[in-house]
Simulated assay, not measured.
Amino acid sequence: MIGHDPSAGYAGYNGLVVLLLLLVGALAIAGLVVYAAVVLFRARSARSTPSARGLAAVLKAAAALTWAVAAGIYTRGMLSVLFLDDQAQALACRAATGSDHVVGFDPSYVPLEFGCRTAEGHTVTSAAIPSYINPAVALAAACALVLTGFAINQRKEKKNT
């Protein structure tokens, strides 16, 4: 897990890293959406070979928008982290473990989760970050990879003809 440091005790997420990831996520979302719109607009105005150029443009735009969705979901998870203060961390750990015997926190950026270390040495994932975040990011990223592969393949086929 990226972000795991067992010696950190009750250290949570680094606030500067969280703010930086939120900024990068917001910029990536905006940039990818604008890129997709520009690609579709150029394809519509060029219309020299509508079928080949249109399919390539749609695939590129769909890939960009799907990457934007993945970035948006991850950024949504980071917003949960932003509002996770000390009291919220303690309450989330108490709810996850069912006791007050928490000896430390175990935050992770990839996958995005907030773990609570118990006195027995186990790490229990708390509900501080919504459980749908990681599977949704993985699904969106997988779809984006497939669409990106199709777009690259379509571009290569277009150059070969």
Rank of each mutant, 00 (worst) to 15 (best):
V102S: 02
T75Q: 03
A95I: 11
T75Y: 05
A43C: 10
A62P: 03
V17G: 08
V34G: 12
G77V: 11
A43Q: 04
G77F: 04
A61T: 08
G9C: 00
A30T: 13
A43T: 01
A95S: 07
K60Q: 07
V17P: 01
A37S: 14
L27H: 07
F41P: 07
Y74F: 08
P6G: 00
G98V: 00
V69H: 03
L16F: 01
A68R: 10
W67E: 02
V38G: 02
D85A: 05
I73A: 04
L20Q: 10
Y13A: 10
V58P: 01
I29W: 09
V58A: 12
V103T: 11
K60C: 09
V38S: 07
V18G: 10
G25Y: 04
Y10T: 06
A52P: 08
V102G: 00
A71V: 05
Q89H: 08
A64T: 11
A43Y: 04
Y35L: 14
G25E: 04
A28C: 06
A95F: 13
V24K: 04
C93R: 11
A88P: 09
V34F: 09
L32W: 09
T75R: 06
A56R: 13
A26V: 10
L84K: 06
L82Q: 15
A88Q: 11
Y13F: 15
L55P: 04
V33R: 10
T66H: 08
A57F: 10
R94Y: 14
L27N: 05
V103P: 02
G25N: 05
A43I: 03
A46E: 12
S80P: 05
H101K: 15
V34E: 06
L27A: 08
A11H: 10
L20F: 12
Y74N: 09
A37W: 10
I73W: 01
V18F: 12
V39E: 14
L55C: 03
R76N: 07
A62H: 07
A71P: 08
T66P: 03
N14D: 08
V38P: 12
R42H: 12
A68G: 14
G98M: 06
V33A: 09
A11E: 07
V24C: 11
L19F: 00
A92D: 01
L65P: 02
V69W: 01
D86E: 15
G72I: 04
S51I: 01
Y74L: 01
W67Q: 05
A26Y: 07
D86I: 14
M78W: 09
S99P: 00
G12Q: 11
L91M: 07
V33C: 09
K60Y: 09
Q87Y: 11
L22D: 04
A8S: 09
Q89N: 07
Q87I: 14
G98I: 06
R53S: 03
G77E: 05
Q89E: 11
